[in-house]
């Protein structure tokens, strides 16, 4: 179990976008086989990627290693898979995770299965960065589709929600010898997210020295004894907010950010549930077949007799995403819904 240390005052704090940029630059300097590929990532006078993560990198590394593709997600994913098979370490960019469905074959049939079909002779060391999350963009630019990929043996699935782990995990992902899907929430990149997330400080301490954070490890970000809350991305911050409010009522939440969904760090969750006897899972992905269902099943299999109340899930409702803010906020898990679920779980 890893408990994140609170950063000392005055230490360097970065946004997730800055931390990711730093991780990419470090890895590109470390290994000339690392390159970037995506749409609108390096065009002179362009955007530096849909969320500005690549700004300045073309100047530093040149167009040979920052490859702008046509709007062809199958080609860009296929190119990443093929280049990885030849020993390169591509970091591919999808602009919006919703576009994953354009390249499902390249990811699910090719990237995930080449090692296996070749009896272990081939590797696919690629990273695919996928921005997720509701941000008033509607049904086709706001999904959190990470659970689809948790179902695919051969892939690894990472969800980051703070700058420290974003950097450490991206560096581990680049050096990993298996394909990693790296899910980042659009509202958590930087300052804009701070407002929309209710004024929370979304920067985190990122040391100057190089470090890695391992794939497959969850982090207990708030310790507590009453109930275990496992949540990713925005739902993680809303869970923290709910935990603060509930502390006034004497409910001490242990809030865990799983960070990697595949392979899942079962043991950290099991240990926490054995201590608290209660589990709430919160994610912005929809309910049915979401990763929370898998986690609930595992906890039921391994920790049933430690549970004192039914497991509760707080997720987006099973509908496409609407745009109108009042409807959108009804669909995604709010702090209030998470808080209510925790209270209900603690009553049982």
């Amino acid at each position: 179990m890893t408990v994140a240390a609170a950063p000392a005052v005055g230490e360097r704090r970065l946004t997730i976008a800055e931390a990711l940029r730093e991780a990419i630059a470090e890895e590109m300097r470390h290994d000339e086989k690392v390159f970037l590929i995506g749409e609108d990532i390096g065009v002179p006078g362009g955007f530096g990627g849909a969320f500005g993560v690549y700004l300045g990198l073309t100047e530093a590394f040149g167009h040979d290693r920052i490859i702008d593709t046509p709007i062809s997600e199958k080609a860009l994913a296929g190119a990443a898979v093929g280049a990885a098979l030849m020993g390169m370490r591509p970091i591919a960019d999808l602009q919006y995770a919703d576009f994953l469905f354009e390249c499902m074959d390249e990811l699910v049939n090719q990237a995930a299965k080449m090692r296996y079909m070749s009896n272990g002779k081939l590797s696919v060391p690629m990273v695919l960065r996928c921005p997720v999350g509701t941000a008033n963009r509607g049904a086709q630019h706001g999904q959190c589709p990470e659970s689809y990929f948790v179902h695919v043996p051969g892939l690894k699935v990472v969800c980051v929600s703070d700058a420290y782990h974003a950097k450490g995990l991206l560096k581990s992902a680049v050096r990993d010898n298996d394909p990693v899907l790296f899910f980042e929430h659009k509202l958590l990149y930087g300052s804009k997210g701070r407002e929309q997330a209710g004024g929370m400080d979304l920067t985190a301490h990122v040391p100057e020295e190089e470090y890695f954070f391992p794939i497959g490890k969850a982090v207990v970000k708030r310790e507590g004894t009453s109930v275990t809350v496992v949540a990713t991305h925005m739902s993680f911050y809303r869970s923290l907010a709910a935990a603060e409010e509930l502390a006034n009522d004497g409910i001490e939440c242990e809030v865990i950010d799983p960070l990697t969904l595949l392979p899942f760090d079962d043991e950290t969750i099991f240990a926490s549930v054995r201590k608290t006897g209660r589990l709430v899972i919160a994610h912005e992905d929809t309910l049915t077949g979401g990763w929370g269902a898998e986690l609930a099943a595992r906890v039921a299999e391994e920790c049933l007799f430690s549970l004192e109340a039914p497991i509760r899930r707080v997720t987006s409702h099973d509908v496409p995403l609407p745009v109108a803010p009042v409807m959108e906020q009804t669909v995604v898990p709010s702090t209030a819904r998470i808080k209510a679920a925790i209270q209900r779980c603690c009553e049982g």
Binding site: F35, I37, D64, R65, I67, K74, A75, A77, G78, A79, A80, V81, G82, A83, A84, L85, M86, G87, M88, P90, D105, E106, N109, Q110, M114, M117, S118, L122
Partner: peptide, 22 residues
């Protein structure tokens, strides 16, 4: 390993070529 998804190789092969170029 041969790709049994019709057209599957047509995108993956670009990565082989890209790696050779890089």
């Amino acid at each position: 390993p041969a790709i049994a998804i019709v057209g599957g190789g047509n995108t993956v092969v670009t990565g082989l070529g890209l790696a050779f170029k890089l």
